[in-house]
Design a protein around this nucleic acid. Structure first.
Length: 250
DNA sequence: CCCTGATTCGC
DNA sequence: GCGAATCAGG
C-alpha cells in the first residue's frame, strides 16, 4: 500500500478529528498504526495529547537514548528550572478561563433547539436552517480547554446524556441530488467544514462543507462529534462518532 | 496485560 | 519516504 493523496487526506482528517492511530490504520486498511503514526509525523501532523510526553527534553532524550544503558554517572539532577507545563486546568473554579471570553460576540450560530434533543440532527439536511439563530442571551459560558485545544462543554451544557443515538445514515442516501452540491476534497479551504462523509475513493465521498466553527476545521455540529471525551475502546460503540462507516468490507 | 503516541533506524 | 521495532506513560 502506498500513500496516495486520498489516503493522506483521510489520515489527516481522521488524525485531526482525534481518531487514534489504530483506528485510522484500521480504516485505511493495509497499514499498521505505526505506519500511520510515522506518516502523520512526516506530514508534521503532530498534535493531540500523547500518553507519553515527558517534560524535560534533555532528560527524556538521555533516557530514550540510554534506555538500555543504566546511567550511573553524570548529570544527576540537571533540573534547574523546569518550566511548568501550562495546560488549561479543568478547574471548576468560578474563575473564568481566558478562553471563556474569547468569542462571546458570536454565541452559537446554530440554534441548539430544545424541541427535540432525542432526535438530534446528524444528517446534513439539505434544508439545514443554520440561519435561524434566534436571540440567545450572550452570557459567556465557563469552559475548559481540552487536550486538542477545543472548548470543552461546561458541566451545565451537557446536552444529551451522552447518548450517541443509534447509528443513523451518515452518508446521504440520495446520490444524484445530493451529489450536485457536495464538497469535494479540492474545494476544501479554511472556512468550510472538513468533516468527511462516506469513504474516500467512492463516488459519493465528500465533505460536510458547512461554515466552520471559527478556529476549528469543522462546523459547530461536527466539532461536537469530533471533539468528545474518548471512551475506553471497550465501551465505545463500533463506529458511532465516526463519520466513516468504519472499515470498508473488502 | 491492554491501550496510546513518539522515536529510532534499517531499508 | 516508509514502517517495524522499540520505548514509555496510562
Amino acid at each position: 500500500m502506498s500513500w496516495t493523496d486520498e489516503r493522506i487526506a483521510t489520515l489527516k482528517t481522521m488524525w485531526e478529528a482525534g481518531q487514534t492511530a489504530s483506528q485510522i490504520a484500521e480504516a485505511l486498511g493495509g497499514v499498521s498504526r505505526n505506519a500511520v503514526i510515522g506518516k502523520a509525523h512526516r506530514l508534521e501532523l503532530q498534535a493531540r495529547p500523547s500518553p507519553v510526553k515527558p517534560n524535560d527534553p534533555d532528560a527524556k532524550a538521555a533516557a530514550a537514548t540510554e534506555a538500555s544503558a543504566p546511567v550511573a554517572a553524570a548529570a544527576p539532577e540537571p533540573v534547574a528550572a523546569p518550566e511548568p507545563v501550562e495546560v488549561a486546568a479543568p478547574a471548576p473554579a468560578p474563575v473564568a478561563p481566558p478562553v471563556a471570553a474569547a468569542k462571546p460576540a458570536a454565541p452559537e450560530p446554530v440554534a441548539e433547539e430544545p424541541e427535540d434533543d432525542a432526535d438530534e440532527d446528524e444528517d446534513e439536511d439539505e434544508a439545514a436552517p443554520a440561519v435561524a439563530a434566534p436571540v440567545r442571551a450572550p452570557q459567556p459560558i465557563l469552559r475548559s480547554v481540552g487536550p486538542g485545544g477545543f472548548l470543552r462543554q461546561a458541566p451545565g451544557e451537557q446536552q444529551p446524556p451522552s447518548t450517541p443515538a443509534p447509528p443513523r445514515r451518515l452518508v446521504p442516501a440520495k446520490p444524484s441530488a445530493e451529489m450536485a452540491n457536495k464538497t469535494s476534497l479540492l474545494e476544501l479551504n479554511d472556512r468550510i467544514c472538513k468533516w468527511p462523509l462516506g469513504h474516500p475513493g467512492e463516488p459519493d465521498f465528500h465533505f460536510c462543507g458547512k461554515a466552520v466553527n471559527p478556529g476549528f476545521p469543522y462546523c459547530v455540529d461536527h466539532c461536537g462529534h469530533a471533539y468528545q471525551a474518548q471512551l475506553p475502546r471497550r465501551d465505545r460503540r463500533p463506529t458511532p462518532p465516526l463519520p466513516f462507516g468504519g472499515p470498508r468490507p473488502r
